[in-house]
C-alpha cells in the first residue's frame, strides 16, 4: 500500500542543525562589532569594568564627542573622497580594458587576464615597501592621490575580471548591430555595453568603495597628517595625551562601519546577483 510518505526526520534535524550553525557563525562574526557597540554606549567610569556585561546607564556622550570633533569629520571626508575616486578610477580603467578584452580584436587577451589575476594574489604587505618608495618618488606622500592610485591597483583586477565576464555575455551580434547602425566602438561601449551591464557595474562599484573605505595598511603608510588620513587610520590613532579614549574610539568605529553595513544590506541581493548572473536575459 502507498500511504503518505513518513516524515523525514533526518532532513528536519539537518535544517535545525543548519540554523544553529548559521547562528553560531553569525555570533562569532558579529561579536567584536557588538562588543564595540556596547563599549561605545558605556559611560567613562564603566569602560574598564566587567561586570556588568551591558552598560547600566547607556550614554551617547561618545558619539556626541566624536561627531563634534572636526578632525573626525575631516577623516570622513577623506575616506569618502578617496573611496569615490578609487571607485571611479577603477571602473573607468577596468571598464575600458574589459571592453577591449571582451569585444575588440586584440592579441594576448588571456595573458592580460592571467597577469592581472596573478598580481592580485600578491599580499599587500609584500608590495608596501616598493609602493612607499614609489609614492615618495612621485612626491605624493600624504595626498589623496597616493591612496587613490594604490587602492585602484588593488581593486582593478576584480573589476576587470567581473566586467570582462559581463561584456562577454553581451552577444557579439549586438555589438555588430550597433556598429552597422552607425556607432563607433567607443560609442557602443557607452550606449550598449554600459547600460546592459548595470548590475555588474553597480556590484563592482560597491565592492571597490568598501575596499577603499576599509583599507588600513596603505592608508597608514602613505599618510602622515589629517589632511589625507582616512577614517580607519584616524580612529586607530585617536590618542589622548595621558589616556586612550576607548569610548570615543568605539563610537567612531561603529560610525565607520555603518555606511558599509548599510551598503551591504541595501545591495546584498544586487551584489550576489551582479557577480553571478548574466547581463542579457531572454
Amino acid at each position: 500500500m502507498h500511504g503518505p510518505p513518513p516524515p523525514v526526520f533526518g532532513m528536519n534535524i539537518g535544517r535545525v542543525l543548519g540554523v544553529w550553525v548559521a547562528a553560531l557563525f553569525a555570533l562569532w562574526s558579529l561579536a567584536p562589532f557588538l562588543w564595540q557597540v556596547q563599549t561605545s554606549l558605556r559611560p567613562d567610569e564603566y569602560l574598564a569594568r566587567l561586570p556588568p556585561l551591558l552598560p547600566p546607564r547607556p550614554t551617547l556622550a561618545h558619539y556626541r564627542a566624536v561627531l563634534a570633533d572636526p578632525t573626525f569629520l575631516r577623516l570622513v571626508v577623506n575616506s569618502l573622497g578617496v573611496g569615490a575616486a578609487t571607485t571611479l578610477a577603477s571602473l573607468l580603467a577596468g571598464g575600458f580594458a574589459a571592453f577591449a578584452l571582451a569585444q575588440l580584436p586584440a592579441r594576448g587577451k588571456g595573458l592580460v587576464l592571467g597577469l592581472t589575476l596573478s598580481v592580485s594574489m600578491l599580499p599587500a604587505v609584500a608590495l608596501l615597501a616598493p609602493l612607499f618608495l614609489l609614492v615618495r618618488a612621485l612626491g605624493l606622500r600624504d595626498s589623496w592621490a597616493a591612496l587613490v592610485l594604490t587602492h585602484t591597483t588593488f581593486t582593478l583586477p576584480l573589476t576587470l575580471w567581473t566586467l570582462t565576464h559581463f561584456f562577454k555575455e553581451i552577444p557579439r551580434e549586438l555589438f555588430h548591430a550597433a556598429r552597422v547602425d552607425g556607432l563607433s566602438a567607443w560609442q557602443t561601449f557607452w550606449s550598449i555595453h554600459l547600460p546592459l551591464s548595470k548590475g555588474g557595474i553597480a556590484a563592482c562599484a560597491i565592492l571597490n568603495f568598501i575596499f577603499s573605505w576599509n583599507e588600513f595598511l596603505m592608508a597608514l603608510t602613505f599618510t602622515t597628517t589629517d589632511a589625507s588620513r582616512t577614517v580607519p587610520v584616524g580612529v586607530a590613532l585617536f590618542q589622548g595625551l595621558h589616556e586612550t579614549p576607548f569610548g570615543d574610539i568605539a563610537a567612531a568605529s561603529v560610525l565607520v562601519c555603518l555606511p558599509v553595513i548599510l551598503l551591504a544590506c541595501l545591495f546584498q541581493r544586487g551584489i550576489v546577483a551582479g557577480l553571478t548572473q548574466g547581463a542579457v536575459k531572454g
Binding site: 551580434e173 549586438l174 548591430a177 550597433a178 556598429r179 552597422v180 547602425d181 552607425g182 563607433s184 546592459l196
Partner: peptide, 29 residues
C-alpha cells in the same frame, strides 16, 4: 567602417537592443 559603408544588417538572433523599446530600437540608426 560599417557606418561609412551605409549598410544595414539583420542578424540571425535579431540582435535587438534589450534595454530599448521597439520605438527606440527602430529609431536608433
Amino acid at each position: 567602417g560599417p557606418r561609412e559603408r551605409d549598410v544595414a544588417m539583420v542578424f540571425q538572433n535579431y540582435a535587438l537592443y534589450p534595454h530599448k523599446t521597439v520605438r527606440e530600437n527602430i529609431a536608433f540608426p
